[in-house]
Design a protein around this nucleic acid. Structure first.
Lengths: 343, 343
DNA sequence: CACCGCACCGTAAACGTTTGCGGTGCAACG
DNA sequence: CGTTGCACCGCAAACGTTTACGGTGCGGTG
């Protein structure tokens, strides 16, 4: 079912059919109606390869994720919610979202290079940014429109959306200090993801502001999974001078930490104050409830999509915001896991 | 950087370049080496649109998922593991996996139709199969190679992989009966997903085998989320003749059920026996530990990929298994959540 | 009546590949 | 030396679009 068949069925030239379908001006309204009707009836839809060969554009946006659940995971419904927001925007422009998973055996840089050379997409959304991320320099050099979900120190000016981990870390420390805590641990991720640096820097700055000395012994890095949380809590409990509170870089850790405390006959909150990151469905159902932070991932997705379009020449007029670098606010949701310290 | 530039840089015809790169026989080993070296050096890689326009093939496999987290979908971690297995197979054949998320505002059938008409992929993996699933008939009619993750009653013969929910349901009932339970509830999903029918049928059959009457009051359907679990448990606790055990169609429910029991001053296991479905990271860290079922999602992904290739003409010789319809075993992992009933 | 402008449409080139076909040159064979 | 076979390579068509360009016919204007 090619445009040629459709054309000779209608007794017009293929040029006219193409113009009619693409909404060009110089075509008789009457014939346009005929063409549209016939296309609908015969189920014609333009071949994507032919079209993109001619126009050099695919109408596809790629979203890279990493399938390494152990170290990079963001929680169980994180990406699904973001995708939903992204699609809400793209649907209005007849753009299709495709997710390009980078397998755990593959290198993220190689992955992006392959994606680019295969010309899958007109634009890319990159997640899990590293502190030094060669993908960013590469994409800038190649002139591929892209946005990252997460900041980086790499490369030149580019659009990114990130969450306000700075405020979360400093706010959590301040809140714990106000509640009498002085020995505040940090549970961080061991991966090179930029978030881990931002989070730890802010944590250290907040400690300094409250006149608390930084103690590397209570900054533990590990897998940001339930199992990782268990292991991290294990190490904290083994310390001679046990911390009274811990700030988490990821809410999945909370599950494991709760479990480890229970196994030691201790009670989360009372025996160790805990502040988690994002209000995930699981964290919401912990007992005692986890103090964490509200965040609309759907809206993050919307913002990602709009920022990407703003960098694409074809959509510049519709989204004139230019380069956007936005830190998304996270609002603290008080729970029962960080009560005032009992002397 | 087209094949033409590469060719005139090498002083050969584009045909020769193409043949050299594609490993055809009738090309001088010496020139092939030159071509490969030059392609590598100049960073040439064949334009996908041109190639697929000519050959009618994209070397891409699509995997549809639904981002409607509330009702249908498994979470991120479920699919990430599956993707990883799928890619392990595809990588050997230079096939690329792209994930095609169906937004929560979109209809899954329309989504698949758009995917097909856009000619994104040479083959498809379809998840979240409905009991009656028009996508299956559509794909068969169009002759698109595909596999489904999940059975269905629709359409003709096609390949599918599914998990052994039958054995899980009957095994769970049998185990609970052996431990003294007679009043066994079922927490099911309210969506039209085929799994819910299979699960409930098996549950009813198992009850009958043990001479227990089916009671619709203790079969509760709702969202398969933590919140859904809370609501379902709410209903169970409100019943005049409270069940002593509950079988779950999804392990996320367990989190909410545990929470609801705690809120009522009850203890999971002791006051209500619980058997979950899959051994997820969250479920593993519940306390008391959840009795559930082990399952290698990576292997499911591998099987999905192989079964799909078996239906594609180009790979038939490598994967000669034909139509495969496989029920994947799930092995019970005993936990503390279903102890013998105390009289 | 001659001319112009305009609305509409057909023609054909171009996008980057792959591949069947034919052609060249060389070695081997009779 | 003539013929054949073979290894290798160039030529050009084809895939399905989009789009610049030119052409036709018509109504309107001078």
């Amino acid at each position: 079912m090619s445009i040629k068949e459709l054309a000779q069925h209608l007794n017009v030239s293929i040029g006219t059919v193409s113009r009619a379908l693409n909404g060009r001006a110089d075509v008789n309204p009457e014939t346009r109606k005929r063409v549209l009707a016939a296309a609908e009836a015969m189920g014609y839809v333009a071949n994507q390869s032919g079209r993109s060969l001619r126009q050099g554009t695919t109408n596809v946006i790629g979203f890279t994720i990493e399938t390494n659940v152990e170290t990079k995971s963001q929680g169980d419904t994180f990406f699904m919610s973001v995708f939903d927001g992204v699609q809400a925007v793209f649907a209005r422009h007849k753009l299709d979202l495709v997710v390009l998973p980078c397998s755990s055996e593959d290198d993220p840089f190689d992955h992006v290079r392959r994606v680019v050379s295969r010309q899958f997409a007109d634009g890319l959304i990159i997640s899990a940014t590293q502190r030094i991320d060669p993908r960013i320099d590469f994409l800038i050099e190649r002139g591929i429109p892209f946005v990252t979900l997460g900041r980086s120190q790499s490369g030149g000016e580019h659009s990114w959306i990130d969450m306000d981990f700075d405020s979360v870390a400093t706010g959590a420390v301040a809140r714990l200090v106000a509640r009498g805590h002085r020995r505040i641990a940090l549970a961080n991720t061991a991966s090179g993801i930029n978030l881990s640096y931002i989070f730890e820097d802010s944590y250290r700055r907040a400690l300094a502001e409250h006149g608390i000395a930084y103690d590397p012994d209570i900054v533990i890095r590990g897998e940001i999974t339930e199992r990782g949380g268990y292991a991290i809590c294990d190490k904290l409990l083994a310390l001679p001078d046990r911390p009274t509170a811990v700030v988490l870089v990821n809410e999945s850790l909370a599950i494991g930490i709760y479990r480890r405390l229970h196994d030691a006959g201790l009670m989360p909150g009372r025996d160790m104050a805990i502040i988690g990151l994002r209000q995930s469905p699981q964290a919401r159902f912990l007992s005692p409830t986890l103090t964490c932070h509200r965040l609309s991932l759907h809206d993050v997705g919307v913002e990602l999509a709009q920022s990407l379009l703003a960098t694409m020449p074809a959509y510049k007029d519709l989204y004139p915001q230019g380069v956007v670098q936005k830190i998304w606010p996270m609002e603290l949701v008080p729970g029962e896991s960080d009560p005032p310290l009992q002397p």
